[in-house]
Design a protein around this nucleic acid. Structure first.
Lengths: 279, 279
DNA sequence: CTGCACTATGAATCGCTAA
DNA sequence: GTTAGCGATTCATAGTGCA
């Protein structure tokens, strides 16, 4: 039961070494169905759920009750149709294993793969599915706050106007109310569930298409320094590097020794290159 | 069997008046489960699919073979969990009725409703599900090309709603242009499957749930002038107005006479207000 | 006609309390 | 037990009017 290691093997069995309720966060981008046949051998769409479920069961065992499981996935197109295995997976995880499907974040890929097809535009987004074991889970929202939009600067340049000082009610009975003056001294606001990130185009041949900012964001949001992050499909080690930079512990697993080796090299370089520093 | 009308009634039966293979595009935003109880009754999540499927069957009958069906929907949260009925609906439409699930566009709501909760951020996106009857369908990609954005800001900060220029038609779409070609000498590119639009916030009367730019975009993408667009849940008439401006025919249906009346008024005003105009 | 100030609006969600 | 109602929380945008 080691920390800060990249272990070669199938996470299904490798995780047996770890006790239950051990990890604070699981964030991963598993091989997609039919995709990357050359590295992982490819899992047929109709085999995907039976393949994934036993592993998800392990994840549930080793995840702390207040921990979070983030799954990055996007169904691909086959014969002009989006495959439905991701939708089925969400239903299976909730129904067969009792996971709570808490949220679906959207990762908007700002520089997505160029290309043109007669009946389809470029695919510029992926799903980031959040699952939890219970309704109450650890979340540190203040760690991911962003600067308030530039509307506020203009708005309050001349002080707060009359209307902004009053409490406005929405006409529909949704109960939305707001007092704009509340933002007068606010520098930071909370983000939404849409993430705007560019993809990193650095690594070729590897299976990680995860930009560093993605695990970074979720690690900051769902863990504290000293917590333990698991990536059961570590690929080139992006999650491990992000965790290290943020002073969290990590455990990475990959079935391919070649990927594990690359990840270890990258993590080691990281340690030499810059002892602390994020960004 | 009339064109350019708003019909009061349940689309399930009203559509009997129309022949099969009649409409070129169906674009609609049905009442979501448990939402808008004060206007529509509100449909329980577990009743949603049996409610929707027979109507979808009608849509399939009246849609042309090369036509497209666009469904705007988003599941809400109940007891800390996202409801799964939308996922189940997609599966039901493909499995039980043979619809092809061709694409899922994301509507990124740049000005989503504010709010703060201990375990959740603001919901800033909705689904735009595309279904077709066959693999080959009509699509006019050149009609929705956009000038290439200045991707100057490559900010790594996540969650920032920097206004991506992409598909950002300001105004009330009063100046909808069909010929984009004469748009300065900037390079035009095809958009992606992520649409960045603000909800409309006019300060007179209730505002439309659907921003005009949404039906506008899909009507341009999937139809030609003279084609026929159906919105079986027309609401305040946004789809009809968009179709009229683009010189397409429309048929709108709504179960509430009050909504039909509002839609007819709005469409009539449109006809008087601006005969053509390119802005 | 352009720019600036100001106003209006929203398919929300959670926790608590009352019935 | 379970549900229904209400208060509390919170941004970013488009339209209008006026200088």
């Amino acid at each position: 039961m080691k920390l800060n290691v990249v272990l070669q093997g199938d996470c299904l069995t490798v995780l047996d070494e770890y006790p239950k309720d051990f990890f604070d966060l699981i964030v991963t981008s598993p091989p997609y169905a039919e995709a990357r046949k050359h590295t992982y051998g490819g899992i047929a769409p109709d085999k995907y759920i039976p393949w994934f479920l036993p592993r998800a069961q392990q994840f549930q065992r080793v995840l702390k009750p207040e921990g979070t499981f983030i799954l990055n996935i996007k169904e691909n197109v086959y014969r002009g149709e989006r495959l439905t295995y991701v939708l089925e997976l969400v239903l299976a995880l909730t129904r067969a294993q009792g996971w709570l499907w808490t949220e679906e974040f959207i990762w908007h890929k700002k520089n997505c793969i160029p290309g043109k097809w007669p009946n389809r535009f470029r695919d510029a987004w992926e799903r980031l599915l959040q699952f939890n074991k219970q309704r109450k889970f650890a979340m540190y929202q203040d760690e991911v706050m962003v600067p308030v939009g530039d509307w506020a600067e203009k708005r309050f340049a001349t002080g707060v106007c009359e209307s902004d000082r009053q409490l406005h009610h929405s006409k529909t009975q949704s109960g939305v109310r707001r007092r704009v003056a509340n933002w007068e001294d606010r520098k930071l606001v909370y983000p939404s569930n849409v993430l705007h990130l560019a993809t990193e185009c650095s690594n070729r041949g590897g299976s990680a298409v995860f930009p560093m900012a993605l695990p970074d964001w979720f690690i900051r949001l769902f863990t504290q320094p000293g917590d333990v992050v698991l990536d059961p499909f570590i690929g080139t080690g992006t999650t491990a590097v992000a965790a290290t930079r943020l002073e969290r512990h990590y455990v990475g697993i990959d079935i391919l020794e070649s990927e594990c080796a690359r990840a270890r090299v990258r993590i080691a370089q990281e340690g030499h290159a810059m002892p602390n520093e994020e960004n």
